[in-house]
């Protein structure tokens, strides 16, 4: 079936783990936006949810760092972090090994990917799932892009990966929803945690909503680091969703910097027509 949903959201651990320290008005607005996204996904009646994440050295390390990886298991566990620290209890999320394998085989026609038959979800996936599938009753297919350990996945490859995921999703009978998660500008887990470059974020989100491929790829890592911090490298997840929704334009439903969450908190989606 054609892809039924393509969107993005934030995944910062503080969204759950430091919720009590945030401005309650800002936090409640974000939580409402995440619930709206949950409802929008549910309305498409998906059979599975692909979550494109920027994993943070929970499963993938510099001894064998994949440019792209896709999960291929019938279940996944999380969070790998201390549940009290993250504010999310231990869970088991369903997967779909058969579906993963069929998607991976199709993606591999144009993009080299690693596959993983086990995967411990860190906050990059656990936080979005805690909002989007809070009962863990929708099969999840985790996807990772190397946004952490240079040399990083090139941006144009991230876009091409999204196009490959779209072809794969369209090739299977299941109804696939797809969500990219990550930050835009942020300096997570560093002394500058809490700094957010709102103007940079809004410019990026404008490019994302227009799905302007040339503009989305017109960044280099050194400039991103200078303007948007090392967390800005996670734009790769958003750009992959753009590739999956090539030809569509999108809407930013929510954006608000919340410093204690260390990121401009975002939900957005493409109109797939």
């Amino acid at each position: 079936m054609p892809l039924v949903y393509a969107g993005v959201c934030s995944h910062a651990p503080g969204i759950r783990g430091r919720a009590d320290q945030a401005d309650p008005v800002a936090k409640d607005a974000l939580y409402a936006a995440m619930d709206d996204q949950r409802a929008a996904i549910a309305a498409t009646n998906p059979d599975a949810l692909i979550v494109i994440a920027a994993e943070h050295f929970a499963n993938f390390f510099m001894n064998n760092m994949p440019t792209f990886a896709i999960g291929m298991a019938d279940f996944y566990n999380g969070p790998i972090e201390d549940p009290a620290w993250l504010g999310i209890d231990k869970f088991e999320a369903p997967g779909n090994r058969s579906l993963s394998e069929r998607l991976i085989r199709e993606v591999m026609q144009t993009v080299d990917v690693a596959y993983a038959e086990e995967w411990l979800f860190d906050h990059g996936i656990a936080v979005p799932l805690s909002f989007l599938t809070p009962n863990f009753d929708l099969p999840v297919i985790p996807v990772n892009i190397n946004c952490q350990g240079p040399p990083l996945t090139p941006l144009h490859r991230a876009y091409a990966f999204g196009e490959a995921l779209r072809r794969a999703a369209d090739s299977v009978p299941e109804r696939i929803a797809l969500v990219g998660t990550g930050g835009i500008s942020h300096w997570p887990a560093t002394p500058d945690s809490g700094k957010i470059n709102e103007a940079w974020d809004r410019d990026f989100l404008d490019r994302w909503a227009r799905n302007d491929r040339a503009a989305l790829l017109d960044y280099d890592d050194a400039q991103v680091y200078a303007d948007a911090g090392q967390g800005g490298f996670e734009i790769r997840t958003f750009i992959t969703v753009s590739g999956a929704a090539a030809g569509s334009t999108g809407t930013v439903h929510h954006y608000e910097p919340i410093p204690i969450f260390a990121v401009g908190c975002t939900t957005a989606s493409y109109d797939l027509g």
Binding site: Q21, G194, K195, I196, W200, I260
Partner: peptide
């Protein structure tokens, strides 16, 4: 970065920049 100085309270509740 041409931004405000360090976050003030250690918890990141100040220092947000709108500088582009």
């Amino acid at each position: 970065l041409g931004q405000e100085s360090r976050v003030a309270d250690g918890a990141g509740n100040a220092g947000t920049s709108t500088n582009g």
